[in-house]
Design a protein around this nucleic acid. Structure first.
Lengths: 201, 201
DNA sequence: TCTAAAATAGGAACACGTTCCACTTCGTCC
DNA sequence: GGACGAAGTGGAACGTGTTCCTATTTTAGA
């Protein structure tokens, strides 16, 4: 499992196409930031990206695909940014908590965007499998790297299992926050408790 | 936190109204079982329940409310059925795993219904808070009761936290299965691993 | 450079969740 | 029994995701 993000599947066509794709995703993020999931209307995205509706659907076969792809791009950005920063914390649990809380704070600073992307992620069906899987891998690799910053490739099965459980809790907590069921503080608390339960070293 | 389900808020009007409500939920379950989330179309539900569209919306203000209410009824049924059966397993972990696997198997025997209800649950926003909260409480109380079958009311904060984490994992696993990201076997495995990580007694 | 194929524009049309309205039926109180 | 408000009926209408069609533009290859 390489940590580079160059996948042969990914290189999509010409510069003009890459540009259109970027414009579309930019428009998506902009609209999502302003009004959340409901504000990301396909006609509005097309107009703002200066693209025809049919073209939008050629690039992204559904609103869910569009939003999950946007999530993927944002997440890659976050993950890259995180990789360059030193990871604070003495114990594994501390490091994981720090990273998750920082990431969560980042998302909470743009609630509408987070709502849009999280809703899309949770609503995605198997036709979005590929994109979803990418995001899942990214999250797991981010967590395992934080757990073992030395990168000795000494990942046990248990490590991966723990990372997965933490990812699940994080997602649930996020959904709870996005849907207004819990506050930001509760969300952080929920994650912290789970991590301490799982990582008692 | 009582385990009875009699809430003063719940008693809704006349027998005719209870009957209509039941017919609507029955129709919802039937349609969901046949074709999943997409097949639960409001016009179809209204027709099958022999109720006007406006009446359907009077009882349930949105498709999500409708499906989450159906989930709640089904879950209550499951929880009641579970309460009468002895809980097999020597250790806490064994008992929790048994119960969760049995419940999961039950849901997997009707994939379309499970898909419909899970999708709705994940997509619900804060306007469905009340119903969602009910379901969450039901799940937590079910789990803590399995963890402490004697009912000595000796629940620690940690117990509740663990139950919550397990609930999160279960939900994530369910979503993974519903959206075709993981198989039934993987779902069971995922839950089992998480429970063993959390309950090492 | 010319041409065929692919991509895009522009927009009509359809499906389903949701709202709304005019009318009818039901239940309750005098 | 009559009156009045609540509840229900039937269906039109609207918004947004999605599909589809034709004309035009861009791209790639001979």
């Amino acid at each position: 499992m390489s940590t580079t993000n160059s996948l042969a599947v990914e290189d999509l066509g010409s510069a003009a196409q890459r540009d259109r794709r970027k414009r579309i995703l930019d428009a998506t993020i902009t609209l999502a930031s302003q009004g959340g999931f409901d504000a990301v209307q396909m006609r509005a995205v097309a107009e703002q990206a200066d693209v025809a509706l049919g073209t939008l659907y050629r690039y992204f076969p559904s609103k869910i695909h569009l939003l999950v792809s946007a999530l993927q791009r944002e997440f890659e950005r976050t993950e890259t940014a995180l990789r360059d920063r030193p990871i604070e914390g003495d114990t594994t649990a501390e490091r994981v908590i720090n990273v998750l809380k920082r990431t969560t704070r980042g998302m909470q600073s743009d609630p509408q965007l987070t709502e849009a992307l999280t809703r899309a992620f949770m609503f995605a069906d198997n036709s979005v499998q590929a994109e979803i899987h990418q995001v899942g891998m990214l999250l797991t690799s981010m967590l395992t790297r934080v757990m073992h910053p030395e990168g000795h490739a000494e990942l046990t099965e248990e490590d991966v299992a723990i990372a997965r459980v933490i990812g699940d809790v994080w997602l649930s907590a996020l959904v709870g926050w996005v849907t207004g069921r819990s506050t930001a503080a509760e969300t952080g608390q929920q994650i912290e408790v789970a991590v301490r339960l799982l990582l008692r070293d």
